[in-house]
């Protein structure tokens, strides 16, 4: 059963959420340091989130679709 094709907007939203999740995972340690910095106040969290998710612009809509809709790479030895 093939799921209905997702719209570009859905894909973009899903990709952004994936990107943020990856980024927060990869830079967890650095993000903690930023949060502890003196200038972390007011809009800083918003800045941080928006800065991180800017990177989605590097991926074309097709690339985003490819990544979001990826099926698992199976490991034959586990079968």
């Amino acid at each position: 059963m093939a799921p209905a094709k997702k719209s570009d907007q859905e894909i973009s939203a899903e990709f952004t959420s994936y990107y943020l999740q990856r980024a927060t995972q990869e830079f967890a340690e650095d993000l903690d340091k930023v949060r502890a910095a003196d200038d972390f106040k007011n809009d800083a969290l918003q800045i941080l989130v928006s800065a991180l998710q800017q990177g989605t612009a590097l991926f074309s809509p097709e690339e985003q679709r490819r990544i979001v809709t990826a099926a698992p790479l199976e490991d034959p030895s586990k079968k």
């Binding site: 200038d39 800083a44 800045i47 800065a51 800017q54």
Partner: peptide
């Protein structure tokens, strides 16, 4: 510098 200001500036420059 690992600070909110640097990140904000980097984001601005990226844009």
């Amino acid at each position: 510098k690992l600070s909110a200001t640097w990140i904000g500036y980097a984001a601005f420059l990226f844009n």
